[in-house]
């Protein structure tokens, strides 16, 4: 399986200086919220999300999905608030191609694709004028790494994200999609069906970019009405910081 083999691809990584985990972030421990420390807790925001409808558990029979959702099925509906307090529903975008990006601004893999490289915003920029909608979703529970309205709003600004970040603090939308990593990517086609799920690219290093941007590849194919050549890949990254034990 390509997804498994991709884990074996060894890459020489130049300059292993750790990403911003230098003295400034140690200082940031003292004023908690931005620090990359396990103790960093976010103030809980009153930002209740509407429940997503959980899909039936298709684990046993699913050959073309991630164990929860399947390529070709109707994407689970959701309604969440973004960092500006605006309610966003998947059904708002009926008839459009929608990209979902599972997000946690403090996850090193998200930092790789936003802070160090501009993978996400560049891919969005390439397709936004072709009617593609892009939504970031943060399923981190209150108090967990990367959760919280202000922190996400700040990163949206810092990273020049022109698309909304939706807060899914209950984790219901993340679980309905079977999203386990940040970033995990989904593409929903214009008929509302799942057309791609998995990784953004093919290198699971926290530093190095892959040679194939799967989302770019799949969006190009979907818009050209071609078959998506790699509809399922193995997502990589941090675990989604769901609540619960």
């Amino acid at each position: 399986m390509m997804t498994l083999k991709s884990r074996r691809i060894l890459g020489l990584i130049a300059g292993m200086a750790m990403m911003g985990v230098a003295a400034p972030s140690l200082m940031a421990q003292a004023d908690a919220p931005r620090g990359k420390t396990p103790a960093a807790s976010q103030p809980e925001k009153d930002h209740k999300d509407k429940d997503a409808k959980p899909q039936k558990d298709a684990r046993e029979s699913n050959k073309d999905g991630n164990g929860t959702v399947t390529i070709g099925q109707t994407a689970p509906a959701f309604e969440l608030k973004d960092t500006e307090g605006k309610t966003v529903k998947l059904s708002d975008f009926a008839g459009k191609v929608v990209v979902l990006e599972w997000f946690n601004p403090e996850c090193p893999y998200v930092v790789k694709h936003h802070g160090e490289h501009k993978t996400m915003v560049n891919t969005y920029a390439k397709y936004k004028d072709k009617g593609v909608v892009w939504l970031a979703i943060n399923s981190g529970a209150p108090g967990k790494q990367g959760a919280g309205l202000e922190l996400n709003a700040q990163h949206k600004k810092d990273w020049k994200m022109e698309y909304p970040i939706l807060l899914d603090e209950s984790g219901k939308v993340g679980k309905a999609y079977g999203s386990k990593n940040t970033p995990t990517m989904f593409i929903i086609d214009a008929s509302g069906k799942l057309a791609y799920m998995g990784a953004i690219d093919n290198d699971n290093s926290a530093k190095k970019l892959g040679s194939i941007n799967y989302v770019d590849q799949a969006l190009g194919q979907i818009l050209a009405k071609e078959t998506v050549s790699s509809p399922v890949t193995k997502a990589y990254g941090c675990s989604v910081k769901y609540g619960g034990s």
């Binding site: 990584i13 292993m16 200086a17 750790m18 990403m19 985990v21 396990p38 996850c107 926290a206 530093k207």
Partner: peptide
């Protein structure tokens, strides 16, 4: 120049020469 990911509740990429 090994690289790794070390995690607890959060993850940090690590590297050394």
């Amino acid at each position: 120049s090994p690289e790794w990911l070390v995690c607890h509740d959060v993850c940090l990429p690590g590297g050394a020469d």
